[in-house]
Design a protein around this nucleic acid. Structure first.
Lengths: 350, 350
DNA sequence: CTGTTAGCGCCTTCAG
DNA sequence: CTGAAGGCGCTAACAG
């Protein structure tokens, strides 16, 4: 039970040098069996159970774990099916390589003892909707490899992204093609000032968040091509959770009962919209068409199944993890999106 | 960009001693502003962004992260709503304390470079359905605090558990009280030999897994009190996932179409049973009553809402995390269970 | 095979 | 306030 049996103690007790003791544990083949037995006996007697990773770490080894930085609180992180799918990709490659993953929340940065600055990991995956550039700075300072997801980390930094604008355009084109003209748009955060609900034209034009902005542009691309204008549409803003989604969608329906189609920037929000619409007695897709974004697993299982912009979420996670583990040159990857048409969209009722 | 700017380099460049440089970063108050400015300038020039956690770690600090050991592959872990709820509890207290959590998979232990033996964490939470005792051994060897969930880790070790037998008894009593006599039991693994499907009496009696055994006992308590016998019931075994659940439940219905009530050892399995039953045209609860176990969030949202044995999953996670961070005496905690009656149970059809 | 030794990067007494 | 020195536990390189 002696608190501090260390390798040196074991070596001494066994009458060998520290180096030999080290070998006995790390390269058993290199040490004569009888000596090894002596060392093991000494170790057992001292209650020593092998080299302490901390020492080994300092000496220069890899941690063998990847840090995933998320902007929300850890508690909320796994509520989002997108995040689950993304983590699934990361953990797939961690599983393959016998590595671990450490979760690092960047929410509430004051007084944290475990953050980008101090996490013991081999690299970071920055999966942050908010405050991205600050975190990128921090990560860069750590001088550990990192990859930013859906965020430009600047030159010489790895990035994995999808073409948000294109995805949004596909979604809007689909609905426009069906003949819809009056749209509601359920957007992700435009600006990180904790406001949600109906969005004025000014606010929309002031959108700071890159992903949201790109998607607006994509919707607008399709609108313009059809002679419509995004200015005429009803836009609401929400954080990506069901509760907020339901609240803002309710406001949207109240403000614009005439809309026949909803473009949501995530499936979570799309499904919230569907639920609210159904509760209000609107049948989908007969009375209202809805297109989501992400194509999370839940989309296909919904009732009716949700038409959505598919993005390879799991693959994003896999690529990110590989980029960390395989320390190559920094690179930018752009993954493809596509529209998956399911049962939540149809011709407008008339 | 020099790869190895260390504290000593900064100190030298700034013309101060290493100790002072250290203070400049860790206790800025202790060093004269002008000196500190010089140090910071030197640091910036050398591209040094503060003390490396690895060094600090070795010196004796906390990692500020908790290791969660799971027996499945990480990839599958978050598919299980029970696990999500449990992690939610753990991450709540991590969020509160600005700490992190590291996921450690104990599946596939060969050739892993990141496991109980080597993870850099302050303590472990052992949330393992399988292979518990081996992992407990490993954890004990690390000499880090750890707490075992639903598993006895032996004297002097912390444990958090619920009364599985009591929970199971409540579930069975409820159905027995409604008048059911012919039961199907969907059990979690009895023995870790990768077998699933119909379970013979011999195999049931050979159950190795503690939780499963306790729950069998609980069911049987209720049966016996009503003059029934578990020997007369149809038992199937599954891993805790929807796919396997559906498969074994199908076998159960084929083998015993006469059952009027299903006792499932998890909500995931219960919901799988409900789905299969409904696909076969059996209405719940009219044609079949089902009781789950765990009371995961999905249970209440199911159609019909699932009657289930509630256990405080999130609280289990919270307690576990506290036990690690607050290094107290080892303790055994037994958390309460209760039956939540919802819409999936009713009188037998005739 | 085995022993010696020099760090890995940092923090913290302990004197000044 | 500042500087010097020891050690945290381990590994790898090198010399026997």
């Amino acid at each position: 039970m002696a608190k501090g049996a260390k390798l040196a103690d074991v070596a001494q007790a066994a009458g060998v040098s520290q180096g030999t003791a080290s070998n006995a544990f790390n390269r058993p083949g290199l040490v004569r069996p009888e000596v090894r037995a002596r060392i093991e006996a000494a170790a057992k007697k001292l209650g020593y159970a092998g080299p302490d990773p901390k020492g080994r770490l300092l000496r220069g080894g890899k941690v063998n774990a990847i840090g995933v930085v998320v902007s929300e609180r850890l508690t909320d992180f796994f509520d989002d099916p997108y995040n689950r799918a993304f983590m699934s990709g990361i953990t797939q490659v961690c599983d393959e390589r016998g590595a671990g993953v450490s979760l690092i929340s960047a929410a509430d940065a004051r007084g944290v003892d475990w953050g980008i600055e101090s996490a013991v990991v081999d690299g970071f995956v920055l999966q942050c909707v908010e405050d991205g550039s600050r975190l990128i700075d921090l990560a860069r300072r750590r001088r550990l490899p990192f990859v930013a997801i859906d965020m430009d980390a600047g030159p010489d930094m790895s990035t994995i992204e999808i073409d948000h604008r294109q995805g949004a355009r596909l979604a809007a084109e689909h609905l426009v093609g069906l003949g819809h003209k009056r749209f509601g748009i359920v957007a992700l955060e435009l600006i990180y000032d904790n406001r949600t609900g109906l969005v004025s034209r000014e606010r929309r034009l002031a959108t700071e968040e890159g992903v949201t902005r790109e998607r607006f542009l994509g919707y607008d691309d399709a609108f313009r091509a059809a002679g419509l204008s995004i200015d005429a549409m009803t836009v609401v803003e929400a954080t990506n959770d069901t509760e907020t989604g339901r609240a803002v969608v309710a406001k949207m329906f109240d403000a614009a009962p005439e809309i026949t189609a909803v473009l949501a920037m995530s499936d979570v929000l799309a499904l919230a919209a569907a639920a609210v619409a159904q509760e209000r007695g609107r049948q989908i897709p007969r009375d209202l068409s809805i297109v989501g974004f992400d194509d999370v697993p839940e989309a296909a299982k919904a009732q009716p199944p949700l038409t959505s912009v598919h993005q390879p979420i799991v693959e994003k996670g896999r690529r990110a993890a590989h980029l960390i583990f395989d320390r190559g040159e920094p690179r930018k990857e752009l993954l493809p999106v596509s529209l998956v048409v399911r049962g939540s969209t149809a011709l407008p009722r008339r």
